[in-house]
Design a protein around this nucleic acid. Sequence first.
DNA 1: CTGTTAGCGCATTCAA
DNA 2: TTGAATGCGCTAACAG
Lengths: 340, 340
Amino acid sequence: MRPTVHDIAAEAGVSLATVDRVLNARPGVRQKTVAKVEAAVERLGYVRDVTAANLAKKRIYPLVFILPEGPNSFMRGLEAEIRAAMQRSPAERTSIRIETVPPFDAKAIVNILDSLDPAEVTGVALVATDTPDVTAAVGRLVENGVHVATLVSDLPGSQRIHYCGIDNLAAGRTAGGLIGRFRGGRAGKVLVVAGSMKLSDHMDRASGFAEVLAAEFPELEIVGPVETNDDADAVRQAVTAALEADAGITAIYSLGAGTRGLIEALAGQASRKLTVVAHEVTEHSRQALADGLFDAVINQDCGHEVRSAIRVLKARSDGLMPISAQERIRIDIFLRDNLP
Amino acid sequence: MRPTVHDIAAEAGVSLATVDRVLNARPGVRQKTVAKVEAAVERLGYVRDVTAANLAKKRIYPLVFILPEGPNSFMRGLEAEIRAAMQRSPAERTSIRIETVPPFDAKAIVNILDSLDPAEVTGVALVATDTPDVTAAVGRLVENGVHVATLVSDLPGSQRIHYCGIDNLAAGRTAGGLIGRFRGGRAGKVLVVAGSMKLSDHMDRASGFAEVLAAEFPELEIVGPVETNDDADAVRQAVTAALEADAGITAIYSLGAGTRGLIEALAGQASRKLTVVAHEVTEHSRQALADGLFDAVINQDCGHEVRSAIRVLKARSDGLMPISAQERIRIDIFLRDNLP
DNA sequence: CTGTTAGCGCATTCAA
DNA sequence: TTGAATGCGCTAACAG
């Protein structure tokens, strides 16, 4: 039987309340008494029952998630995962609110951030546009004691306590390794399609990709990146134009969203067998894999990201440092054969 | 504020105990009273606080894990994850014991299974050798009310309630898709190295691999599979012999363990650039990826598998069916670039 | 069949 | 500076 507060109270010869004070580092206990209790804790190997503590405390964690609205399938998937977490709220003692903003709208993010009452919110997780005003707003919030984590795309140099997402430099490298190997040493050009260079994740992917091609696959030449603002129609037009302009393109790396547009462009070029790698498993990319239009899709598990964000925010609210290693999000690679 | 048992007792005009009886489907309540309580639950939107219930119940789940002993890195990694789960035991209300058996020793597994006291064990997770006597022993245990889950390798046709592991047919297909694409249409032979065809996971991988090659990459011809009993020295010898005997081999798919032996064999053939895909991220395979000796490694996250096994076994002990979809283990693909 | 009462392990008034 | 008493939401004897 695990020792309880009663056991250690008896062992130390003090009352329950005193034990509690020592355990929670509350003031008003003589140093000598503290020592007695700590000795008893040590001797009995006491570990606090967190669930019982939470029950007694009736602690709940009010959290806010901020993410872009609009048709982006990945973001909608992310939202679905947040809603799933809301379902679990009673068990996890969280109280989650979702706020959506127009995509790429830094000002809207800032407005929401500034409207948050530090007394009513303990943690915020946001998909951030990497601009100075957002970074500043995050700083203000953190100064006011609200814990902030970035989701999917990081805010380097900000006060955020944690980034819940993949290493996008490594993701770009992975795409490079994949396309390089798929091309098997044959020379050619690779079209790189990006959403926006205002998104730090997109920037990092492009860099990682270029790095690997330069170092390991010099026979491949990069065309682009072309920016599409993650808009499917823009993607379709850009890809179609590039393919028609340059017959030397043998591969495409799409590192942003608007995957539907890419698929449409590809369908219009059916005679040309291209090696294609895109990001995020969605309804569209899943179909493209099955159809053999895409060779591989790089994915981040947004379920993991949301759960990680919640864990980290809760931990920080309790004054604990999250174990970074455990919270790392993996870079998934999917072929048609290992689709979940 | 969430409604509590008191609230629904008041609302239904009955006592606490009656509410509890209804909530836990215990006998001895008039149908009419049951209805009253259920109506109140419905009206107030009551959801039970599981942590409080567990606290009151002092419920703990005694679980046993059975896995092979020996130097197999993957199995040792699995064991490490089980030990990590043991660390979390107080919080998760589990009491976990590990039993190890000699690899491929069906009789040893049967002995342990038969020695378990159903009164003292609520669930068992085992890495099974797929033989009739093990299947029978699992059946006996299940008949006695112990819940059994298979881990890593399944026991098809047995009474196990759940298989915690990857779809090995799909894993084999994935390896095929990878090697096929890496070879980029060039004809050649692929050496397949397996551990034992007594392991259902190895059999499935071999089948899936062959399936995909036949369907999508007819230019590739399979050599093998050679059986090595997952012994590194046997792998080294078999691979070396095969490579020397057949200059047409341009790729290797190692679907079992003994990865160290594969690496040694490869080191002896440095002049020959082979496409290599192996299973499981371990110290060895990680190094081989970094060195460019392996192109990709297919992995199953044993941490996930262990946690999933625990969740499933606990859920079943509480009479709940696990949500299969949520417990699916992913087939991870790692290049040097996305290694965790 | 139903209700009363006393905990589970911990936190928190309120007194002393 | 310390302790006694009460309660968190739920379960489980034990009565009635």
